[in-house]
């Protein structure tokens, strides 16, 4: 009886130690993930802001060089049209 009780006790203790160990590892990983997420979020924000600035810059340039930009787009369309004709 005593032996059985001790075995159960050790088994339970083993389960507790194992699950605690697992818990600590996962929590550690979660902490690491949170910090990675924070830094990626920061990077995302930075690049998003820089892209917004680039877009603004593009809009200003497009406005300044509207006719030229349209001409370039038209030439690109013509190029695609000829390429399609060549590959037909």
């Amino acid at each position: 009886m005593k032996k059985v009780a001790l075995s159960i006790l050790f088994l339970l203790l083993g389960i507790i130690i194992y699950s605690s160990y697992k818990l600590i590892i996962i929590e550690k990983e979660n902490i690491k993930l949170r910090s990675v997420i924070n830094s990626v979020t920061k990077d995302n924000k930075t690049i998003k802001n820089s892209n917004i600035n680039y877009q603004k810059q593009i809009n200003i340039l497009k406005d300044e060089k509207k006719d030229k930009w349209e001409e370039l787009e038209e030439w690109k369309k013509t190029k695609i049209e000829i390429e399609e004709a060549l590959s037909s």
């Binding site: 690049i47 820089s50 892209n51 680039y54 877009q55 810059q57 593009i58 340039l61 497009k62 060089k65 930009w69 370039l72």
Partner: peptide, 13 residues
């Protein structure tokens, strides 16, 4: 998107 935008800026310049 950034590289595309940079290309666009280069194209415009």
């Amino acid at each position: 998107k950034e590289s595309e935008l940079k290309n666009n800026i280069d194209e415009l310049n």
